[in-house]
């Protein structure tokens, strides 16, 4: 049978990442499955969810929803949601944990909390523009719109879509 030592190590391999995820520090690799315990509330046959969507201008100047699969290819389409949720990749400087006094902590947070350099932002703009061009969109600008969607819990359809926020990204 597996030794007690082996069992202890296995337990630590499970437990440490699990606790880290509870504190928002999910490591990789780790034996963790998707959790997502958030809920929605139903009130009078309706519920509300927030969505963020990427729009770009078609050649006729009209804003159009960007089709995730074609835009992201060969990257998985699901990553578009992550991209729009993180400011399209345009990083802003954030304070480092523990007031930035510990070198190793600063090193670990260097990619998450530092802003991008001008060269990196230019590279990001080009990457987005390349994808827009491929989808026959105008390449000068995109916007991320945040909507509050009121959904009928009877038929699952959107009853009302309210614009909460719009953020424009100039790519030129």
């Amino acid at each position: 049978m597996h030794s007690l030592k082996f069992t202890g190590i296995l337990f630590a391999i499970f437990l440490i990442p699990f606790v880290l995820r509870l504190f928002g520090l999910e490591p990789y690799p780790a034996i963790l499955f998707p959790s997502g315990p958030e809920t929605v509330k139903q009130v009078n046959g309706k519920t509300e969810i927030e969505t963020k969507q990427l729009f770009a201008k078609k050649q006729n100047g009209q804003w159009a929803l960007v089709e995730p699969k074609a835009f992201m290819y060969p990257v998985s389409a699901i990553q578009l949601a992550k991209l729009v949720s993180k400011n399209m990749g345009f990083k802003k400087q954030k304070p480092f944990p523990l007031k930035g006094k510990i070198g190793i902590v600063n090193y670990l947070y260097r990619s998450q909390n530092s802003s991008s350099s001008a060269a990196e932002e230019a590279e990001l703009r080009n990457w987005i523009k390349k994808r827009l061009k491929r989808g026959n969109y105008q390449t000068s600008e995109v916007k991320v719109a945040t909507y509050s969607n009121i959904i009928s819990t009877t038929n699952g359809n959107i009853l009302k879509k309210e614009l909460k926020d719009e953020k424009y990204y100039n790519l030129d």
Partner: peptide
């Protein structure tokens, strides 16, 4: 974590519906 938030007698609160609607309308 789901057990903590999902297992209750509140029929108006739901986790699976959130997964479904977000998948449908956000992703």
């Amino acid at each position: 974590e789901k057990a903590i938030h999902w297992l209750n007698f509140d029929l108006n609160s739901n986790g699976t519906a959130r997964w479904f609607y977000l998948g449908l309308y956000n992703l």
